[in-house]
Nucleic acid binder design. Structure first.
Lengths: 164, 164
DNA sequence: AGCATTATCTTAGCATACTAAGAAAAGGCA
DNA sequence: TGCCTTTTCTTAGTATGCTAAGATAATGCT
């Protein structure tokens, strides 16, 4: 008999539905994987995607500003951008007005990729919310944002108390 | 002037609110970190927590069954359990009726930790949903579960088509 | 019984992303 | 101006969790 994992793949998920953190993990992971399946063929990994997506909106930012917008550590950004540079998707040069900063620019190749790859996010999102009414999607986004605000405030108060 | 990250920490999050995958990432990460801050003092890391929590519900499961319930790869489980064993929180022995399986049991020490650490999940959850009505919490859980079902079905159909 | 297939666990290698600590540049102030 | 602090980026080390490939045990088929 096949393992129970094949019998009803969704069952395993329902069993842990009482933890919002866990639900968030599953959703984040599925999003990454589904997106990755589409973008990998173009040499864009899951880790690179996050940065590319932000740069498609606006490039010429410093690494620190990029990190801030994506809520990533500077060190993480350094490593990810090194990979993107090696793939010829970005180039970087020191800001002449503040030579501590490194500004990040897309290459023409990366710009061309945008039209191919940007729709992928939309596709995954559409798929994830299949059967949702527009109101439900809006409600979900709103609830998630409220959670994030709560969590951010809590983290900030931890910081203030010097706990971290 | 201080970096803008300190000016309004929540702003950075709102800027990317249009991606459900990204929102899920932020929530998952905040949950992990807030929990970690409480449990680390007891020698329980974020990665161990997931497994401990499941084992507090029911131990004596095989590693594969544990993996299935937590939606983890078997290899991931192997490594995590090795850590828990080294910490003296679990012990494992081969199932006599099927010697391919390794059954996982909590140690008395791990059982004692339950009463101290289990409330932590609840605390983080309460904090995350501050200002929510019970109906909103229920609605959120329900919406998240529906997304997961959608995503699982999609992944399953990818598997069927042999794409992965 | 014997052999091929399947299931479970492990190992190895890699990707992502964290923290801590250090280097280089800029800013602030005596 | 010179020194101390802050900011930005980098490096090193670690944790989490993935895939691929292998070892061992059980199962199924002839």
């Amino acid at each position: 008999m096949p393992a129970s994992s094949k019998a009803d793949p969704a069952r395993a998920y329902w069993a842990i539905e009482d933890s919002l953190g866990h639900l968030a993990r599953l959703i984040f992971r599925s999003f990454s994987m589904l997106r990755d399946a589409q973008t990998r063929a173009h040499g864009v990994s899951s880790g690179h995607w996050t940065f590319l997506r932000q740069l498609w909106r606006e490039d010429g930012l410093s690494q620190h500003e990029l990190s801030r917008r994506l809520v990533m550590q500077d060190a993480t950004t350094t490593v990810a951008l090194r990979g993107l540079e090696k793939q010829g998707l970005i180039h970087r040069h020191v800001n002449r007005r503040d030579r501590r900063e490194t500004l990040v620019y897309l290459t023409p190749r990366a710009r061309e990729l945008a039209s191919t790859l940007l729709p992928v996010t939309g596709d995954v999102q559409t798929l994830a919310t299949r059967g949702f009414t527009p109101d439900e999607v809006r409600a979900l986004r709103s609830l998630l944002c409220r959670i994030i605000v709560n969590l951010v405030e809590e983290e900030a108060s931890h910081l203030d108390r010097g706990q971290w």
